[in-house]
Design a protein around this nucleic acid. Structure first.
Lengths: 252, 252
DNA sequence: AAGTTTCATTGACACAGATCAAAGGGGTAC
DNA sequence: GTACCCCTTTGATCTGTGTCAATGAAACTT
């Protein structure tokens, strides 16, 4: 095995890949949202280039010194936390236009791992410089705060999911969430490829992989979805949604 | 029942209560952390006064327009999210020096409820003005980002708890977390009063109240804690800690 | 292209925690 | 001070999901 194909070796930054925010089709989803042409140019100057990652490579690891946040330009990531005693929790899946790495701001050290689940590309956004620029550009500052707040709200949603839903509800919520995010990016709401394993889904949803698999099978038996390994077709979105809102307020 | 004693009526702001950050014994825990005397004075000017709440009163509700974040000056709060279909998840408990309301930044509308669990007092921090000031004071800006990031990291910890721990582990983690936070505020690490009900603890931990109660009883039977209703004495902190780190990497 | 490893599915069984139920105690409101 | 209600505890039972195990299908390696 050649060193340059070995996984998890961090590749050098490839400045040639740099593409201005103003040219990026994700600008409406990503950090430059709401900026003027002019301000977007200033943000461009700050962005430290792009970085390509092969599937399986770490973008950062828990313990790494925090210097930048990252905008996903293409591809798919997971973040997970693991503790000394061997617990492992997937805390999120990130796709194009989403921001990674904000966990590191608080202690200057990353507290989770970010791993590419397929060949991916991110923009590097040096955080100190972002802070400097955002103190000059009000809308950038405010949007950064919104992005962080959105992450907090998203986490509350996951807590709700983990704290109150049963297995099939969790999986339905998960599929609907993916569907909605793919839609926002111009992909099909009903047909997509899962980039993660059943085990990773299970970890995210607080379930064992067998339970995830069984729930998929049950959804398929009932005609709500068609599953073939990682390929998913959602056949009945409304019905999936009803799973989330039990007819009467069933308590659990 | 008189209107002025009815719960959940928001009291007027009481400017007389205003106490400068520089005089506040929470300044090392709270937003002014790391500010110079001078800058602290500028933050003082911005803070819109204090607000007292009686037990049971809402500081804000899901749906309220977001205008301020709040620093807990005294007392104890819970935040919870509830969905149309009747799910209810406690997302956190906040004590003196902690910041409430950052969930509202992303959409300009609060996404959860904040309720005082005992008579409490908060400082009002108008967010737009905070943003203006933080664009002038680098350390304030950075500290605000740290506070938000810390919230994200905390949420990941809760996700880990909900996703990977069993009932007794969750409760042990909860007690140790409280203990540590009380310690940081100069209170006893081992003896404190729970401000929340078993049901609220259960909601936070993704358990039913009966399960919480049984876990308390078991801890007591094993001599790790002494429980009398809401009064808790932790008798064996090290032993509680071992509950979190299963000897061998037991998987669940 | 074949071999090897990882990933997914399915079944049988076990058990942690939910549910249902009942009784007692404490705090709160009047 | 008293009455009421909410909170807590505890028991009995049920059930959803975890655990263990085996088979099969893909995907990657060489």
């Amino acid at each position: 095995m050649h060193a340059n194909v070995k996984q998890n070796v961090i590749p050098l930054i490839t400045p040639g890949l740099k593409l201005a925010c103003s040219q990026c089709n994700l600008r409406e989803l990503c950090l430059p949202f709401g900026l003027s042409e002019d301000d977007m140019g200033r943000l461009d100057n700050l962005i430290g280039g792009a970085r390509k990652l092969k599937r399986g490579q770490h973008l950062y690891r828990a313990g790494d010194v925090f210097e930048s946040i990252f905008a996903v330009k293409a591809g798919f990531f997971k973040t997970d936390v693991l503790t000394e005693d061997g617990r492992d929790q997937v805390t999120g899946f990130q796709m194009a236009g989403e921001i990674l790495g904000m966990d590191g701001i608080s202690t200057e050290v990353h507290t989770c791992n970010a791993v590419a689940l397929e060949d991916s590309e991110v923009c590097l956004i040096p955080f100190t410089e972002l802070e400097m620029l955002s103190s000059e550009i009000r809308s950038l500052q405010h949007h950064l705060h919104k992005v962080m707040s959105r992450e907090i709200v998203r986490d509350h949603g996951v807590m709700m999911l983990l704290g109150t839903m049963r297995a099939e509800e969790r999986l339905a919520a998960f599929l609907l969430n993916l569907s909605q995010r793919f839609t926002a990016r111009g992909y099909s709401p009903s047909e997509f490829h899962l980039r993660m394993t059943r085990e990773e889904i299970g970890s995210y949803l607080g379930l064992k992989l067998e339970t995830v698999s069984r729930a998929f099978s049950r959804f398929q038996d009932e005609g709500m979805i068609a599953v073939q390994q990682k390929h998913i077709r959602i056949l009945d979105i409304p019905r999936l949604k009803t799973l989330l809102a039990p007819p009467d307020g069933r308590i659990r």
